[in-house]
Amino acid sequence: MASRPYPWLNPALTVGGLAPLLMLAVQGPRGDLGPNAIEAALNQTGLFALVLLLASLACTPLRLVFKWTWPARVRRTLGLLAFTYALSHFLVYAVLDQGLALGAILEDIGKRPFITVGFTALVLLVPLAVTSTNRWVRRLGFPRWQRLHRMAYVAAVLGVVHFLWRVKADLTEPLIYAAVLALLFAIRAGEAIRKRRARAAVAARNAA
């Protein structure tokens, strides 16, 4: 009987990926996050949302470049972890930082570009999280599902812009993530061009 390869992989990533969130929930109330615990929790959840989203977007490029197949198995887990952190990031902001002051939150989302793009990224991730199940892939049909899930790239761009526009002076860290995203995008774009050329070559041969 052939069992599913790497049965431990996704559970392990889920547990390891959620551990820092649990740590924050324990450290925060205990006063272990420093003088401004809310700021620390905001920064940490936001950073992890972006990192995990980039990691999920790296799965296909890793297959293209190194011919690895295992990253495709963890893409959904990484994407859902990214969504979990993005949602936690928003909840820390709305509940703990702003105390659910709706007026202030709406003003932030409407008037402050860095919050507008961050919030848009979260909103874009919602349909992707909802349609992450196999049932939804079948219901939408794979090509449509795939087109929908390319929105993850839009969300990642907005996430990087959100980071870039937030920092005061030192752009180094957000620029590193911008460079990673650009690299992933370049690999995908290169592959798309290669495929199109291959198709065109086949078409030309068939026509001749």
Binding site: Y6, P7, W8, L9, P11, A12, L13, V15, G16, G17, A19, P20, L24, Q27, D32, L33, G34, A40, N43, Q44, L47, F48, V51
Partner: peptide, 27 residues
């Protein structure tokens, strides 16, 4: 599998910890 599970989970948590430690490392 249990060993691989524990190792992978620890590596994942550890990787995230290293990325985020600037914000939360104790003084």
């Amino acid at each position: 599998n249990a060993g691989l599970f524990a190792g992978t989970a620890a590596a994942m948590a550890g990787g995230l910890y290293l990325l985020g430690r600037k914000q939360t490392r104790p003084m």
